[in-house]
């Protein structure tokens, strides 16, 4: 590991100011489960590490049946995984976070950290996008809100500028007709990166889809919405033929690469299978 300077700002204003001055060689540390590994293995050059754990009010966690879920940047993956509100209302997110790393990692890692790392294969991102999550960003002035699906610009890249700090994330409350699912495809059941991840959030009544959001992970430079597939499903009755059509459509929307984990063709195939299955699970089908 290369030497670095370490900072512990006491307020958001101080942190933002510091990050703006230090520029692109600075990195925020919260859980550190990605950052420290990357620094130790010198995959990333970080000269300044800014710890935000001394900043108050970043650990809030609230759920309201009308307003939905909101939690701060320091909330850990494990807190979200074990929250009855998440398990009851956001089963796709609950599933995804339970598959991130190990329990030890989840005890330290934060959801916002996983998001800001901007990995195309991040487990938390597809369900959050499918559920319409948005981020609160502090930049020294008034908080601005960024829809999560507009947040990413490429692998490891986001719309944030130096001085921007994501302070929290909020998700709308699910409606009474919501169905949700996340399926991760990996080479083993735990301690694994997603080869493909598919999250579905669907509004349905009596087999009829009124609205749907599908997010695909690890098959494009960022997690993507499968918008054409969503259009295909919206307003229609979900049956086996439509599911097959949706699977085919999602496969066309994915632009996967091939690497040592899986070939592009296999990833594309899995987008089809997993999209079909995830819609089925979200509609209440057997797993």
């Amino acid at each position: 590991m290369k030497p670095f300077e370490y900072y512990e700002p006491a307020s958001l204003a101080e942190a933002s100011d510091l990050l703006r001055r230090l520029g692109k060689d600075a990195s925020i540390i919260a859980g550190g489960t990605d950052l420290l590994v990357e620094m130790k293995e010198e995959l990333r050059s970080v000269l300044h590490v800014v710890n935000i754990k001394k900043i108050p009010n970043l650990r809030n966690f609230t759920y309201d049946p009308a307003a939905g879920l909101r939690f701060g940047a320091l909330v850990t993956v494990r807190e979200v995984e074990t929250s009855p509100h998440v398990i009851g209302n956001y089963p796709n997110l609950a599933k995804a976070v339970s598959l991130l790393g190990s329990v030890q990692v989840r005890n330290r890692a934060t959801i916002v950290g996983n998001i800001c790392r901007a990995s195309p294969s991040a487990d938390t991102i597809p369900p959050l996008i499918a559920d319409g999550a948005s981020l609160s960003v502090y930049d020294g002035g008034a908080d601005r809100t960024i829809l999560l699906e507009d947040f990413f610009t490429g692998p490891g890249r986001t719309v944030l500028s130096p001085g921007d700090i994501v302070t929290g994330i909020s998700l709308p409350a699910p409606g009474p007709t919501s169905g949700r699912a996340y399926i991760k495809h990996g080479r083993r059941k735990a301690m694994e990166l997603a080869t493909v991840g598919v999250a579905v959030s669907i509004e349905h009544v009596a087999g009829q889809c009124s609205d749907v959001r599908i997010a695909l992970g690890a098959v494009a430079p960022t997690v993507i919405r499968a918008r054409r597939t969503e259009d295909l499903l919206r307003g229609r009755r979900i049956d086996a033929a439509l599911l097959a059509e949706a699977a085919e459509s999602a496969m066309q929307e994915a632009t996967p690469i091939g690497n040592v984990r899986a070939s592009a063709a296999y990833r594309r195939d899995m987008v089809g299978v997993l999209t079909r299955r995830a819609i089925g699970y979200a509609m209440g089908g057997a797993r």
């Binding site: 080479r187 083993r188 059941k189 735990a190 301690m191 694994e192 990166l193 040592v260 984990r261």
Partner: peptide, 25 residues
């Protein structure tokens, strides 16, 4: 453990991409 057959480079010299079954498997 996979080798690039064009230059002999190791493609997965880490536990990120060399996957052994764990207790869950």
């Amino acid at each position: 453990y996979v080798i690039d057959l064009t230059d002999g480079r190791s493609l997965n010299p880490s536990f990120v991409d060399y996957k052994m079954p764990l207790s869950m498997d």
